[in-house]
């Protein structure tokens, strides 16, 4: 295949194939900023590859140069001269006519937890902390049942009957309530992290997590320490997720 030997075609193919891989083979999908970073790196690599020696570089440039000057490619040249300005003009139109969008709200979804918090006037260890109610395995079903009742009377309105973040009030709030069925939420967090989030709610978030806009109440005003641990146990039980453990280096001391 002569076409495949062409440096330009090769470069284009590499770009397309890597784009397809980044876009469709990575799960969960990478955000746009990461994608463009990867593609930038690939583009650089391709440029290094085609310019590795001067023959290759000339071969890469030849088809482009030919399009610009060859008398035989006049029709193509003309077509490009019409199509590209039109495309850019249309692009400019969509930009100029675009309705303003609300500015994006960048926020840290799972901000780093503090080492300790104040819970109803006493120091409470978060980093490395574990759920004390799990020690007595026989009592776990009782705690889960109690947690379920707390959930349905307090949390369900936003986080949903099915714990999927689709409660009564979910569609009215931004940021949306957490979806506990999503493996990206409680499954990658420690129980003590959840304790912090439940106890301190939106107002207890650090600035990078936009505390002014989270509608999550600070439940320390309403629930006891035991009740918070119980509702945490219910979340894991009802979704079938496992809490993340603290790294051993942390848990050792």
């Amino acid at each position: 295949m002569n076409l495949l030997r062409s440096r330009l075609v090769q470069a284009a193919l590499i770009l397309i194939v890597s784009y397809l891989i980044f876009q469709f083979a990575i799960r969960p999908p990478a955000p746009f900023s990461v994608l463009s970073l990867y593609m930038g790196i690939v583009l650089l690599a391709v440029l290094v590859y085609v310019s590795s020696d001067s023959d290759s570089w000339r071969a890469f440039l030849r088809p482009m140069h030919a399009t610009l000057v060859d008398p035989g490619k006049r029709a193509l040249r003309l077509a490009l001269m019409i199509v590209i300005p039109l495309l850019l003009g249309y692009y400019a139109y969509t930009q100029a006519a675009a309705k303003p969008q609300a500015p994006p709200e960048l926020r840290a979804v799972h901000p780093a937890p503090p080492d300790t918090i104040q819970f109803r006037g006493k120091d409470f260890k978060i980093a490395g902390g574990d759920n004390p109610l799990r020690k007595d395995a026989a009592a776990i079903p009782k705690h889960v049942a109690a947690g379920g009742e707390i959930y349905v009377r307090n949390c369900m309105y936003c986080h949903g009957d099915n714990l999927d973040g689709k409660g009564h009030f979910a569609h009215g709030f931004n940021p949306p309530p957490a979806n506990f069925q999503d493996p990206g939420t409680i499954a990658m967090l420690q129980e003590a992290f959840l304790f912090w989030r439940i106890a301190k709610g939106g107002p207890g978030l650090p600035k990078e997590a936009t505390p002014w806009n989270s509608v999550m109440p600070a439940w320390e005003d309403r629930l006891t320490e035991e009740q918070i641990w119980q509702v945490i146990m219910y979340l894991y039980d009802a979704t079938g997720q496992q809490p993340r453990r603290w790294e051993t280096a942390h848990g050792a001391h």
């Binding site: 590209i84 300005p85 039109l86 850019l88 003009g89 249309y90 692009y91 400019a92 139109y93 930009q95 100029a96 006519a97």
Partner: peptide
């Protein structure tokens, strides 16, 4: 929005 696009196209 009616002025910018033709200018962009022309400049291109």
């Amino acid at each position: 929005r009616f002025v910018v696009p033709p200018v962009v196209a022309l400049l291109t």
